[in-house]
């Protein structure tokens, strides 16, 4: 599913990586627990999370995740943005809950990891 399509479905704002709207992800994984994210072996994952701190970005870096969607209007800090920029990531932000976000994307065909 294209990033632009995901943003449109969730009325999401692209905070970083707007120019990569045509790139695609295959899987969605929703978690606030970073150790759970670190168990993933697949590539092409969109991380959907309510955890909004520098470790979210660090975890994505270690897990080779380039696309992160923050639910419930979580505000991305300057240090997060700097690191995400450095790691060439795409950051999206939606006001929808983690549950609603996941439901919409699952229904639209984004695959589940487990």
């Amino acid at each position: 599913m294209k990033i632009g399509e995901i943003a449109a479905l969730l009325d999401a704002t692209c905070i970083l990586g707007e120019e990569r709207r045509d790139e695609e992800v295959i899987y969605g994984f929703a978690s606030d627990l970073m150790s759970d994210v670190l168990t993933l072996t697949q590539e092409g994952i969109l991380l959907i999370t309510g955890l909004c701190n520098i470790q979210t970005i660090r975890t994505a870096e270690m897990a080779n995740i380039q696309f992160i969607l923050f639910a419930r209007n979580k505000q991305i800090t300057k240090d997060m943005l700097t690191l995400a920029e450095q790691e060439n990531m795409v950051l999206l932000q939606t006001r929808y809950s983690l549950f609603k976000t996941s439901g919409i994307l699952y229904q639209a065909g984004l695959k589940s990891v487990y």
Partner: peptide, 16 residues
Amino acid sequence: REMGFGAGMGLPNIKN
């Protein structure tokens, strides 16, 4: 836990 860790998965994740 606020940082997204502390669920008792660290050492098992390392081992894996």
